[in-house]
């Protein structure tokens, strides 16, 4: 576990020094949200109905870019080879990368959420902790699949296109769960209404993390 935390620490330190991932993700996602709100006809109710779906699709787009950036850093100067040579179980690398990507996602979402609430016209406090539980559980599933597939895509030349192609269909359940919880929380639903979906999201997370931990060593094998 110590090796995993060291990798997370390294990624966070790089991010603090360079601010390459979170800030760009945030600006990009802001732009996507703006484009979505302009794509609906003015004054239409469709937008507020679509808002949770738009938010989660924005997370997916930004998330896949963030994953790409996080792994591009490892490509530079063959850092990934160096990581793999470290005397630790490859699963540790997987967990470390998952944790750092998860933290990036959560920070980015914390920045985006107030803007989203302003653009789509509701209080940022609406939904409260349910929304954040949904974000956390959704992110874990997304990251568990995303890190595994990024390790595959790292060797592919057109990886910017291939990664979303592989990742989006696989993480559809996470998207559906996330949208469902967010929509219900924003409509003022209590914990009881979303408990089913939160449970399912947690179950997806367990499945995807276990699969990732088992399969990751095969992906990075030389």
């Amino acid at each position: 576990m110590r090796a995993a935390l060291a990798i997370t620490r390294k990624d966070l330190l790089l991010e603090m020094r360079g601010r390459e991932v979170v800030v760009i993700l945030f600006v990009f996602a802001f732009l996507v949200l703006t484009l979505f709100s302009l794509s609906a006809s003015p004054g239409s109710e469709a937008l507020s109905e679509m808002a949770p779906g738009i938010l989660w699709i924005t997370f997916l787009f930004a998330g896949v870019l963030g994953l790409g950036r996080n792994f591009d850093r490892e490509r530079e100067n063959d850092c990934f080879q160096g990581l793999l040579l470290a005397p630790c179980d490859p699963t540790q690398i997987y967990w470390g990368k998952c944790l750092s990507t998860l933290i990036f996602m959560l920070v980015f979402q914390a920045l985006l959420w107030p803007l989203f609430s302003i653009l789509y016209g509701f209080s940022p406090l609406r939904g409260g902790h349910i929304v954040w539980t949904a974000f956390l559980l959704g992110d874990i599933g997304f990251v568990a699949l995303g890190v595994l597939l990024s390790a595959i895509a790292i060797h592919i030349r057109s990886r910017e296109i291939v990664l979303p192609l592989l990742l989006f269909p696989l993480c559809l359940p996470v998207l559906l769960g996330g949208v469902q919880c967010t929509a219900s929380a924003m409509a003022g639903g209590g914990f009881r209404e979303v408990a089913g979906w939160l449970g399912r999201l947690a179950a997806f997370d367990v499945i995807f993390i276990s699969l990732g931990s088992i399969l990751f060593p095969f992906v990075v094998e030389e």
Partner: peptide, 30 residues
């Protein structure tokens, strides 16, 4: 197509398992 050789074979093996496990999850979540 993108990854020839043993590396592609390993990646495809991993994805072949992942995709199959994901399908029932997709079905039930929908």
């Amino acid at each position: 197509e993108a990854l020839p050789g043993p590396r592609g074979a390993l990646a495809a093996g991993v994805f072949g398992i992942l995709a199959y496990v994901d399908v029932p999850i997709v079905y039930f979540s929908i």
